[in-house]
Design a protein around this nucleic acid. Structure first.
Lengths: 121, 121
DNA sequence: CTATTGCGCAAGCAATTGCTTTCCTATTTA
DNA sequence: TAAATAGGAAAGCAATTGCTTGCGCAATAG
């Protein structure tokens, strides 16, 4: 029932990413968010719940309204994950990667059992 | 049937993130990947398919083996998305910190009895 | 050639998602 | 006080996920 509730899963949904984008600028109340989308208020409400359950959203009650504000720091997990690979794929570590691949190739060639894919006739 | 196949959704699954981590170092063949996990080969195979369908993985046939290598550049979409917010929250934290410090100072001035660190006596 | 190995395909299944509709409860406002 | 208004809770449903089992097929080893 209570499913996985992590940030990666939370941002997997485009609607939720859009909500984050909306709320990042300033706190917005639930109905105002819902109006921007082509879903019922309840559908959006559910997305908000998911976002808040994984710590990305803070819902502050104010009178009969609920103001949502993002806790962007929660995205740090994602940032750190992707940033590591970003370093890898942008220059810096590229030479290392090439080196490793080269090594692999050499190892494959060294393996005697690997005598040419052309095979026999 | 053919569902959403985007990078955000692909990395939402922890197993798939682990696969990316494994393959980032060097190309690995399917069975070698599958051995690292507590799922059947077919389950992993399916994850690989998803990863390759959204462009994160390149599967190169070599004899009867399939070597998987990541195309990390595909993570750029995620990187750019999260990086924007990263800037925002690191910036915001700075200004928020300034704001709080300012507030604290003001409060200390207003309340002479406050035992705050400002130590105004 | 035959057995083995690497791996994909397909069917089947339970759990999860994303959404809707209906109903309910507070807080305002007239 | 009654009528709006903001928004949550629950039930129902189709589509999707993640996984397994079973089968088939090509490449290679013996």
């Amino acid at each position: 029932m209570e499913a996985r509730r992590d940030v990666f899963q939370a941002i997997a949904d485009p609607t939720r990413r859009a909500i984050i984008g909306m709320v990042a600028k300033q706190p917005v109340n639930v109905n105002a968010i819902a109006e921007q989308f082509d879903h019922t208020r309840q559908a959006i409400s559910l997305h908000l719940k998911i976002l808040s359950e994984c710590g990305l959203l803070n819902i502050r009650k104010e009178g009969r309204e609920r103001y949502c504000e993002v806790k962007l720091e929660k995205l740090n997990e994602v940032y750190e994950w992707v940033e590591e690979y970003h370093k890898l794929w942008t220059g810096r570590m590229k030479s290392l990667k090439r080196f490793i691949e080269q090594e692999e190739l050499q190892a494959a060639k060294r393996t005697p059992a690997k005598k040419g894919k052309a095979g026999r006739k």
